[in-house]
Simulated assay, not measured.
Amino acid sequence: MTLVKRSNDLFPAFFDDFMAKNWFASAGINNTMPAVNIKEGTNNFEIELAAPGMDKSDFQIEVEDHYLTISYEKKKHAEDKRPNSEFTQREFSYESFHRSFTLPKTANLEKIKAEYTNGILRLDIDKDEKLISKGKSIKIS
Results as ranks from 00 to 15, higher is better:
Ser7Trp: 04
Ala27Lys: 07
Phe101Tyr: 15
Asp124Tyr: 05
Glu95Ser: 11
Glu64Leu: 08
Ser85Gly: 00
Leu121Asn: 05
Leu109Trp: 00
Thr32Glu: 12
His77Ser: 07
Phe45Asp: 01
Ser85Ile: 06
Ser7Tyr: 11
Ala13Ser: 12
Ile47Leu: 14
Ser133Thr: 08
Ile112Ala: 05
Thr32Gly: 05
Thr42His: 07
Ser85Val: 14
Pro83Lys: 07
Met54Asp: 02
Lys105Thr: 07
Asn43Gln: 12
Lys113Tyr: 14
Glu64His: 07
Val36Cys: 13
Phe87Ala: 13
Leu131Ile: 02
Asp16Ile: 05
Asp17Lys: 05
Ala107Leu: 06
Phe24Asp: 13
Asp16Thr: 11
Ile120Arg: 02
Ile29Val: 15
Phe92Lys: 09
His66Phe: 14
Ala114Asn: 11
Asn8Lys: 04
Leu103Tyr: 05
Ala50Ser: 11
Phe87Val: 03
Asp80Met: 04
Ile120Gln: 03
Thr117Gln: 14
Pro104Lys: 07
Asp124Met: 04
Arg82Cys: 00
Asp55Cys: 00
Ile140Phe: 08
Gly119Met: 06
Glu62Leu: 08
Gln89Glu: 09
Ile47Ser: 01
Ala51Val: 13
Lys5Ser: 11
Asp126Asn: 12
Asp9Arg: 11
Tyr116Gly: 04
Ala27Ser: 11
Gly53Asp: 06
Phe18Ser: 02
Met54Gly: 00
Ile125Leu: 09
Ala114Phe: 06
Ser100Asp: 14
Leu121Asp: 05
Asp9Ala: 10
Leu68Val: 03
Asn8Phe: 12
Arg6Trp: 04
Glu46Trp: 01
Tyr67Cys: 02
Gly41Cys: 00
Leu10Lys: 12
Asp126Ser: 14
Phe14Met: 03
Gly53Phe: 02
Phe24Tyr: 08
Lys134Leu: 13
Ser137Arg: 09
Thr42Leu: 12
Ala27Glu: 12
Glu95Phe: 14
Asp80Tyr: 01
Pro12Phe: 09
Phe24His: 06
Ser57Glu: 12
Ala20Ser: 15
Arg99Pro: 01
Lys139Tyr: 10
Pro104Val: 06
Glu40Leu: 00
Glu86Asp: 07
Thr117Ser: 10
Met19Phe: 12
Met1Tyr: 05
Lys111Pro: 02
Phe14Asn: 01
Lys136Met: 09
Phe24Cys: 01
Glu48Gln: 14
Arg6Leu: 11
Lys136Trp: 05
Asn22Val: 00
Phe87Met: 03
Thr117Leu: 09
Lys39Pro: 00
Tyr67Met: 10
Asn8Pro: 01
Phe18Pro: 00
Ser96Leu: 15
Thr2Cys: 02
Tyr72Asp: 08
Lys74Asp: 08
Ala50Ile: 10
Val36Tyr: 11
Pro83Arg: 04
Asn84Cys: 02
Thr102Phe: 10
Glu129Leu: 07
Val63Ile: 14
Asp126Ala: 15
Asp124Val: 11
Leu109Asn: 15
Phe11Lys: 03
Ile61Glu: 07
Ile132His: 07
Trp23Tyr: 15
Asp58Phe: 04
Ser57Pro: 00
Asn22Asp: 15
Glu110His: 14
Ile132Tyr: 06
Ile47Lys: 02
Thr69Asn: 15
Thr42Gly: 03
Lys134Gln: 15
Asn37Arg: 13
Ile38Gln: 10
Asn37Leu: 09
Glu46Asp: 03
